[in-house]
Amino acid sequence: MSNIYQPDLMTIKKVINETPDTKTFHLIFQDEELQENFEFVTGQFGEYSCFGAGESTFCIASSPTRKGYIECCFRKTGKVTNALFDLSEGDTIGFRGPFGNTFPIEEWEGKNVIFVGGGIALPPLRSVIWNLLDLRDKYKDISIVYGARSVADLVYKHEIAEWEERDDVNMVKTVDPGGETDDWDGHVGFVPHVLENEFKPDPENTIVVVCGPPIMIKFTFEALERLGFKQDQLITTLENRMKCGLGKCGRCNIGSTYVCIDGPVFKAAEIDLLPPEY
């Protein structure tokens, strides 16, 4: 393909309704050779399109260890995500990617890894969670601290249940105060608060990967620093608005850093060197 803006076509093989406004698409390429050879690394993202509505940027939410398909998860918010939301199994979408940098999972081997996510930010973590779980022997304790506004807003409920069942995963789930239901068996409280005061992780030999809105990242990093974590133990992703994903359209930059090329994965020390435009 010579045109960097022309997507490859994918078929929606399966639609999973995650929440009333969030869906997962299970996708395969229509071109057999591409379907055979497509590769990506956890942390990367794509440009997904509904022809007639436009393109939107989401992470690849499946793990590269699960071959033969990719998944994305999105909330209907604007024009493109509303149009995608209305598509059904068998329909065609466009995909450009994979783009961006990757989670440095080799650097984490032999360490404890804690994933901290809020709301619709579980999908990028879900890719790397399954990646690590599929290479389980290489990592020590794996913990997931995930919260949403309400029980209804939790995505991947079936997988949260699966992680709770496993004895090699610590699953800590929470909803914001007021978002709980009568039969809710998780925590009630904001993610950074639950992390700091209920889960209280030990910084020794531990990496923390945080995904969420900018305000959550800020409070979570502050909480982790109070627990004794150092900057080089903290990793996050930034999600600035993008169009091209190729470092050209000029939209996602934070000063001289392009989230689409230099990100979306950043270490806390790298974030500290950025102007506050994320």
Binding site: S49, G52, A53, G54, K243, C244, K248, C249
Partner: peptide
């Protein structure tokens, strides 16, 4: 200046 948008004209 090189910034651009990408949209579908349907």
């Amino acid at each position: 200046c090189h910034c651009f948008d990408i949209v579908d004209e349907n």
